[in-house]
Design a protein around this nucleic acid. Structure first.
Length: 876
RNA sequence: GCGGGCGUGGCGAAAUCGGUAGACGCAGCAGACUUAAAAUCUGCUUCCCAUUUAGGGAGUGCCGGUUCGAUUCCGGCCGUCCGCACCA
């Protein structure tokens, strides 16, 4: 064994061993319990970032730990390879997205390998491979057949200068990212997936996901947004009827049908048909409607905007009283929720209250609290106005409580065919059409005679041409004759291929299923998926808490209903890892953009209480401002390239740092000093084993039976520490997922070994055992160095093939324990006692402690608490 | 506005079921080794009082409650981060 720890050589040797022994190739084995450990696959952006390292290290530690526990482990990896950045890179460099993407994959795959992740690379997939997206297309066609997928017009962002559709992230402050031109809204036909059909199931099943973080479940429940209420109709009056041209009703949805008699106006969104009709005959209203439609699309801005509105001059009739109610256009009504229209009840809804005050509309009270705290609403809004109570001035319903009134009003409306109870969802169907090149083609053909015709299964996949270079204007597929041209599968005449591609969230909604049957030919998956699924542990960023995880839950159910899989929930257990943060330094010139400085190039400055307040750039020696801690990002210039660290310290140090510095769900603060601290620890571990082996000669021959009675106190204490450490690490990794405390425990063990100075065979044996446990316990976290150290400790086999050891119960028991002694709850002393000492013995020992005596002396003991083998508390 | 999390030394954090607050590590200080530096090793390192020893007091954002005992449970407040945001 070498005296110095040299990570490069150690890591190469370990990786070669795993490679040669195909250690991570997984195969189905019905006789063994499986463990499917999955980390969210990366977008191949170019290089790994620290977030990837953290994510994949967490997964790898669990995979390796479970492997040692005897589970049949699958840990696959792939690439979320379609998407906008590849097109942007193409525009910038003139390289086809396919080449850029595949080059990035090659580089990042090498990086993942050099980090030593226990990945089964035989199952690797990239979503841009036709073998993969073939099945996106196939499943889309099945959904089209079953009606889950359907066509409807949708609104897109249109850049009038580049004449192209923009993704939301390409719209910055309402303008196109490249041209700066104000973005327009356009309606075009698009395809939707009916996720709302599954809304109730997706919501109810959240209760079963007890191994998911609660906040993810709450976020999903809020996103699905179930609300129970009443849909009701206000019939048009004569004037409105003649303007619209048909008899009709204005439909609204409300959760507060009990306030129906307080309606003094009805408000519709600017996109509502009534608004359009009224605007056609009123130029002022038309100007207002246009303004609302073009207003900021930032939802936070909308929420803060004042309640603006204009009357349409149109009226509808109250469903019970028949009284005319005026229709207004209001900027706070959303077309996309409910019916795009609301009944205005100013006395009992804060927004309606503000609106009515502003526009001089009456505010009659129709619900009062049971206590009679008020009988009419005042000038300023009070929260109690929105509460349930007892109805007044509500015709036949007066006197009822709110809940009963809602039932009665709904029943009465139903009799008149003017309304009914129903559930409204916030969740909307998923529009998957993207007017982009680098994505999975939607398998449809447009024929002048037959209309939209699905591509037959035997002509799948519709292959995306990979040699196109987008230039920022439009979708290059529309200029690619060989892709565009097709013959109609129905009538055979010349036809045009659909050029829209699918949202990349489609690709990531089922990739975890494909890993489980990576080379299945006849369908997206085969029976092997039934063995591996569901994923036992999924690990990824909190940023995917809603969309990706919800879409995957939906897609899995669709596949279930197509009899492709047997499960409903894809991920049994979810861990959302925290972000990686670093300091932010910047200069803010009087005019122009902030300039950011890489923290490595800044000498920080601190105030009197040691708080970071600024810094000096090492480049020009001028001061820079401190911007706090923030997620590592390109735009803030505070990223750290893991490759640099890998080259400098090796994979084990990097893995160790990400696992030790914070628990996995919390944010992780970058610190190069902490990294070098982890490197120092590994070096100390190396040296400890080196010295041990040198001192003791060949160690394999040591007999390791410990006779408790014959052992010295030192041997017993070190054995106790060793097995205590083992049981802590087992729980911390296996149950609590607190890798940081697991590492701390091993550090303590190593400190104990260093402090243990006894010599002789028994001492050498107990030291050997301690070091072996330390190596085994750390091996999931730092697999390379432990691979080498396991051999150094005298073992012929590889540490990865070792079984996770069980703590020795005999070593864990202690014959003498220390009790703490409190007086009135304050720590006053400690006493050594035989384990299991009874109350009287413990109290007697406690009273004998000199410090305790000083505090108890002369005062009667009123009460004494005894927690066996733990503490005594004397109340005086 | 609504929902959720978090608040502990100079810093990252630990305390797992209500029982020793600050494990482990970083940074810092002192010492050893060295011609010197680095590396390494040893010791100290929450604050205040006392310091010759022994010790004593306070302390987990703030105020209060429950308890023999609260970082932990309960109520209220403050700060901070995240998510959603005119959802009818």
């Amino acid at each position: 064994m070498q005296e110095r720890y040299e990570p490069a050589a150690v890591e190469k040797a370990a990786q070669d061993h795993w490679e040669q022994h195909r250690s991570f190739v997984a195969s189905e084995d019905a006789g063994r319990e499986k463990y499917y450990c999955l980390s969210m696959f990366p977008y191949p952006s170019g290089r790994l970032h620290m977030g990837h390292v953290r994510n994949y290290t967490i997964g790898d530690v669990l995979a390796r730990f479970m492997r040692m526990q005897g589970r049949n482990v699958l840990q696959p990896m792939g690439w979320d390879a379609f998407g906008l950045p590849a097109e942007n890179a193409a525009i910038a460099n003139g390289v086809p997205p396919a080449k850029w993407t595949r080059d990035n994959i090659d580089y990042m795959r090498r990086q993942l390998r050099s980090l030593g992740f226990a990945i089964d690379w035989q199952r690797e997939l990239a979503t841009c491979d036709a073998d993969y997206y073939h099945w996106n297309q196939w499943m889309f066609l099945r959904m089209l057949e079953s009606g889950v997928a359907y066509r409807k017009t949708g609104v897109v962002n249109w850049d009038p200068v580049d004449k192209t559709v923009l993704a939301n992230e390409q719209v910055i402050d309402g303008r196109g990212w490249r041209t700066g031109a104000p973005v327009e809204k356009r309606e075009i036909p698009m395809y939707y997936l009916g996720i709302t059909r599954y809304a109730q199931e997706l919501l109810s099943a959240l209760d079963g996901l007890q191994e998911w973080p609660e906040r993810v479940r709450i976020m999903q429940a809020n996103w699905i947004g179930r609300s129970e209420g009443v849909e009701l109709s206000f019939p048009y009056d004569g004037d409105t009827r003649s303007l619209i041209g048909t008899d009709g009703q204005l439909k609204v949805f409300t959760t507060r049908a009990d306030t129906l008699f307080g309606v003094t106006f009805v408000a519709v969104s600017a996109e509502h048909p009534l608004a359009t009709a009224a605007a056609a005959r009123d130029p002022k209203l038309r100007a207002f409607v246009d303004e609302c439609r073009h207003g900021s699309t930032m939802e936070a801005d909308i929420a803060l905007a004042p309640k603006r509105g204009m009357p349409t001059g149109l009226h509808v009739k109250h469903p019970f009283t028949g009284q005319p109610v005026e229709v207004w256009v209001a900027n706070y009504v959303l077309m996309a929720y409910g019916e795009g229209a609301v009944m205005g009840v100013p006395a009992h809804d804060e927004r309606d209250f503000e609106f009515a005050h502003k526009h001089g509309i009456a505010i009659p009270t129709v619900v009062v609290p049971g206590s009679g705290a008020y009988d009419a609403v005042g000038e300023t809004w009070q929260a109690e106005y929105g509460e349930y109570g007892k109805l007044i001035n509500s015709g036949e319903f007066s006197g009822l409580g709110s809940a009963a009134a809602i039932d009665a009003i709904a029943a009465a409306l139903e009799l008149r065919d003017l309304g009914r109870k129903r559930v409204q969802w916030r969740l909307r169907d998923w529009g998957i059409s993207r007017q982009r090149y680098w994505g999975c083609p939607i398998p449809l053909i447009h024929c002048d005679k037959c209309g939209v015709v699905p591509v037959p299964d035997d002509q799948l996949p519709v292959v995306l041409p990979e040699n196109l270079v987008p230039d920022g204007s439009g979708n290059p597929l529309q200029r690619c004759a060989e892709f565009l041209h097709a013959s109609c599968p129905k009538c055979g005449s010349d036809a045009r291929r659909e050029t829209d591609t699918m949202d990349t969230f489609v690709d990531s909604s089922w990739y975890f299923l494909r890993y489980a049957s990576a080379d299945a030919k006849g369908g997206p998956v085969d029976a092997r998926a039934d063995y591996w699924l569901p994923v036992d542990q999924y690990i990824g960023g909190i940023e995917h808490a809603i969309l990706h995880l919800l879409y995957s839950r939906f897609w899995t159910r669709v596949m279930r209903d197509l009899s492709l899989v047997k499960i409903s929930e894809p991920f049994s257990r979810l861990l959302t890892q925290g972000m990686v943060l670093n300091h932010i330094y910047y200069r803010a010139p009087a005019s122009g953009r902030r300039e950011y400085f890489n923290p490595e190039q800044v000498q920080p400055t601190f105030d009197a209480s040691n708080q970071r307040v600024g810094g000096v750039s090492l480049v020009d020696n001028q001061p820079v401002e401190y911007g706090g801690l923030g997620t590592m990002s390109k735009s803030k210039g505070n990223g750290v390239d893991p490759q640099t660290l890998l080259d400098k310290y090796g994979a084990d140090t990097l893995r160790m740092f990400t696992m030790f510095t914070a628990p996995p769900e919390q944010t992780l603060e970058w610190s190069e000093e902490a990294v070098s601290g982890q490197f120092r620890f590994l070096r100390r571990l190396w040296k400890a084993i080196h010295d041990h082996v040198q001192a003791g000669g060949p160690v394999a021959g040591i007999a390791r039976t410990f006779d408790r009675a014959a052992s010295s106190d030192g041997v017993r204490a070190l054995r106790h520490k060793t097995h205590q450490t083992l049981s802590k690490v087992t729980v911390d990794i296996g149950k609590r997922r607190t890798f940081n405390t697991a590492i701390s425990a091993v550090m303590e063990l190593l400190n104990a070994v260093a402090a243990y100075s006894e010599q002789g065979d028994a001492a050498h044996a107990v030291r050997q055992e301690a070091l072996e446990i330390a190596v085994l316990a750390l091996s999931p976290i730092v697999p390379h160095i432990t691979h080498e150290l396991w051999h150094a400790l005298g073992h012929a086999g590889a540490v990865i093939d070792e079984h996770w050891p069980e703590p020795d119960p005999d070593a864990l028991t202690q014959s003498v324990v220390e009790l703490i002694v409190q007086v009135n709850g304050k720590l006053r002393g400690r006493v050594q006692l035989a384990a299991g000492a009874d109350r009287d013995t413990a109290l007697a020992a406690a009273m004998a402690d000199p410090t305790v005596v000083r505090f108890v002396e002369g005062k009667p003991v009123r009460k004494a608490i005894h927690v066996p083998d733990k503490l005594v508390n004397l109340v005086v």
